[in-house]
């Protein structure tokens, strides 16, 4: 047995990640912007230091309007997510949306009002010949959650999401699909430990007052041609907008391919 196999089996089930790559990118962009504007702000402050006392000395200015309260977020939804400004959806994007609409006709994409400090409601896929990744919030009635789909030509086979022999209690199941696909499904629930502020920063709604846990479903499908597709759904409490069966059906949709 190789060391890698020993390590991999020792690690066991990999829990859902709290890392949001888009959030990391936004934070770094903001940091870069602040770095650039910092100098300008210092210059501006120095200028104000001279001009404000002069203005005060010249008399009182007009009254400033009171700041308006923040708009109350109200989630708006549509049959497709919002594309990035100036872009159109690719064939893979449309195949994902169609698969979701077919398997879960009541599901809609949240296009506005999802609590976040960025553009999490915008469908911004990574799309190349080797990898596709897209994510966005969805709703079915009053149930909301976050949907992610990743399709890859190659996969690091050292990474398994769960090991059925060890993790039966977490719904870790291996099966075979109708076209010979190797399917692995898992589901688990984790207590909500983040503060509401941190959850907002990660684009999640305020934690529910009851059912303080989140539910995660995942399906990984290795197709006979070697491509690998992973679909996950995260929601608070047990009110996921998609069932594991619906998620599996989306993952098995053969129309979702790399462009």
């Amino acid at each position: 047995m190789s060391y890698q196999t020993v390590f991999r089996e020792a690690v066991g089930e990999i829990p859902p990640t709290s890392i949001d790559v888009e959030q990391v990118i936004r934070r770094q962009r903001r940091r870069h912007r602040l770095g650039r504007t910092g100098l300008a702000a210092m210059v501006g402050a120095a200028v104000l230091g001279v001009t404000v006392p002069l203005a005060i000395a010249g008399g009182s200015g007009p009254d400033l309007p009171a700041s308006s309260p923040s708009p109350t977020p109200s989630a708006q939804s549509a049959r497709t997510p919002r594309p990035e400004p100036g872009t159109t959806f690719s064939a893979t994007d449309l195949a994902v949306f169609a698969a979701l609409a077919r398997e879960a006709p009541d599901v809609e994409w949240i296009t506005e009002g999802w609590p976040s400090d960025g553009d999490l409601v915008t469908w911004h896929p990574v799309d190349s010949a080797k990898l596709y990744f897209g994510q966005g919030p969805i709703r079915a009635g009053d149930r909301t959650g976050y949907f992610k789909l990743q399709l890859q030509q190659d996969w690091d086979r050292r990474v398994a999401f769960c090991i059925p022999e060890k993790n039966q209690e977490n719904g870790c199941v291996n099966s075979t699909g109708p076209a010979g696909e190797k399917i692995q499904t898992w589901s688990n629930q984790a207590p909500i430990t983040s503060s509401d502020k941190n959850r907002m920063l990660h684009g999640k709604p305020a934690a529910p007052t009851s059912d303080r846990f989140s539910t995660h479903y995942g399906v990984a499908v290795e197709r006979p041609d070697g491509t690998f597709l992973i679909v996950t759904m995260s929601a608070d409490g047990e009110n996921s907008p998609l069932t594991l069966a619906q998620l599996t059906a989306v993952a098995l949709n053969p129309a979702i391919t790399l462009d």
Binding site: R8, V11, I19, V21, I25, K130, L131, F133, Q150
Partner: peptide, 28 residues
């Protein structure tokens, strides 16, 4: 560049998490 970065990171996220877990033995 940003798209290239996004693609690179997304493809390696899980192996990196496992590496980090082997080092620190705590998923958080």
């Amino acid at each position: 560049d940003e798209d290239e970065y996004r693609q690179f990171v997304t493809a390696r996220l899980e192996p990196l998490r496992v590496t980090a877990y082997l080092l620190c033995h705590n998923w958080h």
